[in-house]
Design a protein around this nucleic acid. Structure first.
Lengths: 231, 231
DNA sequence: CGCTATTTTGAGATGGCTCAAGCTATGTGG
DNA sequence: CCACATAGCTTGAGCCATCTCAAAATAGCG
């Protein structure tokens, strides 16, 4: 369990800053706690803070005109969020929802501005973080445009495994409460199709399912599906 | 027709920098010319430069395993590209192809690093540019996941109109060679469906079509479709 | 003027969606 | 501790938006 300053100092946004900067960040940060299903902020709201997840899991979502929701991504401790609103717009382009009890640091736009002024390396760090996320989203965009559902679902699960996977006996457990609906909104399909797809994989022994729970028994099998290789 | 230094000084990446910085950028830039259909670089290639379009139009594309291509976005003069590779990866995550004769500035990674060192504001500028593109891609991702083809195509055309639209008699012309195939790869559908959709709109007097050419006669009509409003 | 790239149109197939119904954990209040 | 309520999940049946493939029309270009 890293200390707060360690977490702040090693996250992608603030890596490489002098200890004085990290100390300032720690001093300026507010810490808040959010229960499961609580919205930290919602899409369209004026940005009142730059955030960083301290503990727990949350998801960034986006609404469609017809009421449909999509999941932009899940976050783990150390991940910054709300940065786009601070950098580019005055408003959050996504909503942030706790998928389990969470704690998050937040900094006011004024504090962020002052710190960026003092430690300009934050600028390049932000650009790097944005670039990495952009790369992932471009990739997912391509998948959504060109691949079948099963392929996309397999990829999504493998990504989640890399991000939050925990080795347990029998395989790798996705270490967050992940409903079929969540997976559907992450991959651009419906909860029905997700249910059918996962059930089939369970038949084949690739995964083991539970309520809001996915255990990967054969990562290799999922890779075969994700890459559309002959089994 | 702005001078090179004006173009460099007013683009999103270098806005607000002191004249000395702009002069340096101008001095360090190489200018190259590319004919229609030429690839400036391709996906996966090690990044050898940060680019900025000087004249013409180009598109960023990405390949799928099955040979299918998608269009990530079209660029107009002043747009930077290849930035993600310089910032986050060592390799270009997309290909860049001239859709008409183009000219582009390029800077070596070493020159970029030196300039960023000297003028740290470039860091925040990069972050802002990335954030804006991220916001757009998140939006398009949502559309691809939740909306029908017609809706997405209408949105894509309206975006292109905002970006490269030119007022002409009779409406707004998309000022770039844009094939049905390009539109399909931009919106995640097939050229056949694009052809049918556009033909229908032409019947209704919303657009006027030509080979690699779209003239918008009724922007409002397209908005109605894009927003899925009752006509 | 003929070649080639682009576009249109048709006909048929299908992957995934929609809607309805029932099932099953999980947690909760009596 | 049990019975019930509820959120999450599964399964089935039918449908339809969109894709696929084939063929022909059209428009530039050399």
């Amino acid at each position: 369990m890293p200390s707060d300053l360690e977490l702040i100092g090693t996250c992608a946004l603030f890596r490489g800053l002098p200890p004085a900067a990290i100390a300032e960040l720690g001093a300026a940060a507010a810490v808040e706690r959010f229960e499961k299903k609580v919205l930290l902020f919602h899409e369209g709201e004026p940005a009142r803070a730059l955030w960083m997840l301290r503990a727990g899991r949350l998801k960034l979502t986006k609404l469609g005109g017809n009421g449909q929701e999509i999941v932009v991504r899940f976050l783990i401790p150390g991940d910054p969020f709300g940065a786009i609103a601070i950098l580019a717009g005055a408003r959050y382009p996504v909503s942030a929802e706790a998928v389990e009890a969470c704690e998050a640091f937040s900094w006011t736009p004024a504090d962020v501005a002052a710190l960026v002024e003092r430690y300009p390396a934050i600028g390049m760090n932000s650009a790097r973080v944005m670039s990495e996320r952009m790369q992932e989203l471009q990739e997912r965009y391509r998948e959504l445009a060109t691949e079948r559902v099963a392929q996309r679902v397999a990829r999504a699960i493998l990504r989640l495994a890399r991000q939050t996977g925990r080795r347990v006996e029998g395989g790798v457990l996705l270490d967050l409460p992940l409903s079929r609906q969540d997976l559907a909104e992450l991959t651009g399909t419906t909860l029905f199709t997700i249910s059918r797809t996962l059930s089939e994989w369970e038949q084949q022994g690739l995964v083991e399912l539970g309520r809001e729970r996915v255990l990967i028994k054969s990562p290799h099998g999922l890779v075969t599906i994700a890459e559309d290789l002959p089994s």
